[in-house]
Design a protein around this nucleic acid. Structure first.
Lengths: 195, 195
DNA sequence: TCCTTAACTTGACATTGACAAGATGTGGAT
DNA sequence: ATCCACATCTTGTCAATGTCAAGTTAAGGA
């Protein structure tokens, strides 16, 4: 206890319990297993109980995606903190980015999937935090000019690589670690950062 | 007639009709409307008719995705043909790539989504064709060294940008055309191509 | 002409998201 | 302290979906 926020009524905090259950299902059995009813079952409540906390399944998915973004930002921060220079920080974040996607493909898919839900205050906040983290790292490494476009360029590279790897769309010829190294090493030059 | 392949039995060619119906639904109403039964309805057959042509819904989606890849390769080829030099061809293909994704987000999502189906001979062939088209363009612009890694770098950049744009994950600050220009202009330098 | 067999239909089942109506318990008002 | 309004949760139901099973239709060779 003490961690929970609401601590209301019967269940204790069904809202957070459902989000946590969903996150567990997502990481264990993939996104196709992530249903409203499965979350309710895992939380030990009836199939219609989530209705009072989430207007639709999309709202629940948004909250689960938000926890994904929160963990994502933490992971990148942690790895960036170890790096000495801004450029090294940027590269470390790139590595961390791809590693997150490869280790939690289902979560990453939910976070960045096309059909993923848009709204949810918590999700919006988490997305903004992720973006600012990236934009700040790029600014630190390359100066403030063309800040957004440069950040988009970096983001596109690591995001595209991650998506291609986890979506299994790569031809078998590809040496993934070698290609990853090339993508990471290309980040700083792309934004005109002095090494 | 004459275009159809099987021309069998009652319907004429239900297999192709279902693929075409699916493609229409996909582009008109998005991927969430693309169901087996909806395709059957659109083709004017009963809900279980597709069973004899596609073992599961995943197999039908794979064939629809294959048509997407086929159109995709055609579109890139067409735009690349207009460009004079290898580097210009590469840039034209990048533009064409992003344009395809933005014009047909649902099709693109089906083609590259994480949950998208893997098998299907036709899909495999179409994917290989797309990859070779890209690899050849990169080779022509940058020479044969590190061919695959360079192609992956280019692919990651345009794919990541496309996915971010169509998944609505961008902060509103972003100037999309400006960011796109930066991504495209970055392709040739990234692979060490002489302009 | 018949008959094997592919193509298609009808009907069914489990699962899902969503809704409605009832049961339950919490916390504040009196 | 008692009671009541209301949030919380349950039970039951509905339409839609993918899949399967069994029956029906028609095509093309024997």
């Amino acid at each position: 206890m003490a961690k929970k926020t609401a601590k209301t009524y019967h269940h204790g905090d069904l809202r957070e319990a459902l989000i946590k259950a969903g996150r567990t299902i997502l990481e264990k059995d993939g996104i196709e297993a992530l249903t409203l009813r499965a979350c309710a079952r895992k939380a030990g409540v009836s199939h219609a109980a989530p209705q009072h906390h989430f207007a639709s399944v999309s709202d629940l998915l948004a909250e689960i995606a938000a926890t994904g973004f929160e963990d994502f930002v933490k992971a990148l921060d942690k790895d960036a903190a170890r790096a000495p220079s801004p450029v090294e920080k940027l590269k470390a974040m790139g590595q961390s980015y791809v590693a997150f996607a490869r280790e939690r493909p289902a979560v990453y898919q939910l976070m960045f999937g096309v059909g993923a839900p848009q709204s949810s205050e918590r999700l919006q906040a988490a997305k903004v935090a992720a973006w600012e983290q990236l934009a700040n790292a790029v600014s630190a490494a390359a100066g403030p000019d063309n800040n957004e476009a440069k950040a988009m360029q970096v983001w596109s590279a690591v995001h595209g690589f991650s998506m291609l790897v986890i979506s299994q769309r790569l031809p078998p010829i590809i040496n993934v670690p070698q290609a990853l190294k090339r993508v990471i090493d290309g980040l700083a030059p792309a934004i005109g950062a002095r090494p």
